[in-house]
Design a binder for these strands. Structure first.
Lengths: 140, 140
DNA sequence: TATTTCTTTGACGTTTACGTCAAGTATAAC
DNA sequence: GTTATACTTGACGTAAACGTCAAAGAAATA
């Protein structure tokens, strides 16, 4: 059986529940993302099938969300990973946007480093106080 | 004039509009933060006066938001910077929370580094394509 | 054939984080 | 005295990002 598709991973498609498990999101979320044009599942009958492209996009979406970008911001950048089928003008714009996003992310990383440093300092102060108040150091 | 307060910065208080300019937020936002117990301006009559503590808190709030934390998550951590006046039990909890937050931020920084690397790769691919399509490299 | 199971499309509800009036008070300026 | 300015407290509105039904269709299973 299954004489056609031996290409293991490349062409694999997922049902919506498989996607839910893969990315730990609800079906509603996936449909919502499709409605917002962040995903483009194909249809078998009226069911959705998510392709490798969708999986790649989802990875980027989750990543973007983690870093505090809005879905709209994420959507715009997603084209950067599918630029094959767009017009040069379009690609140029996306490229520019990507550069901006890159510098914003690098800035964020810097600030994150500083914030981490601050937080460590505060935690140390806090720890000192707790120990001075007689806390057992094994609790901390 | 002004014979009492020579302590320049420490005791300075700000009106709401001064705070707005300082942190580039609306008055509504500051009142909202107060209602959510992230800020504790004192009152002169019925007006608010924001103290150094509030300025410190605002800095942390803006920072937290930048990194994608919710106001509620931020609020819980703010106590870490005011632990003097709390009970040991309370401080211990906040300390634990701080440790978790720290590791979450360090994780985020790692992921951010990877995402930046990926984005750079994509941008390079994109750039190559554009040049191959005859774009002027000075445009990019 | 009957009945689960999976999925679909609406449509309305919810939370977060504010924005936007409206109406009132209080102090300062003219 | 009144006008302007800064601020106040509601109260309602809004955008983003989903959650939560409800009704219905197809496919698999008993």
């Amino acid at each position: 059986m299954n004489m056609i598709s031996t290409k293991s991973n490349e062409d694999k498609v997922n049902t919506i529940t498989e996607m839910c498990k893969l990315f730990k999101v609800s079906a509603r979320t996936l449909r919502f993302y499709e409605s917002k044009e962040l995903l483009f599942p194909i249809r078998r009958g009226q069911h959705r099938l998510f392709t490798k492209s969708d999986r790649g996009r989802m990875k980027l979406i989750m990543q973007g969300k983690r870093f505090g970008f809005s879905l709209e911001e994420i959507r715009q950048l997603l084209n950067l990973y599918n630029f094959g089928d767009h017009r040069t003008r379009q690609i140029k714009q996306t490229y520019q946007l990507g550069l901006k996003r890159l510098s914003s992310m690098e800035q964020q990383k810097k600030e994150l480093g500083l914030a981490i440093k601050d937080l460590k300092t505060q935690l140390q102060l806090c720890k000192d106080l707790l120990l001075k108040r007689g806390a057992d150091s094994r609790d901390l």
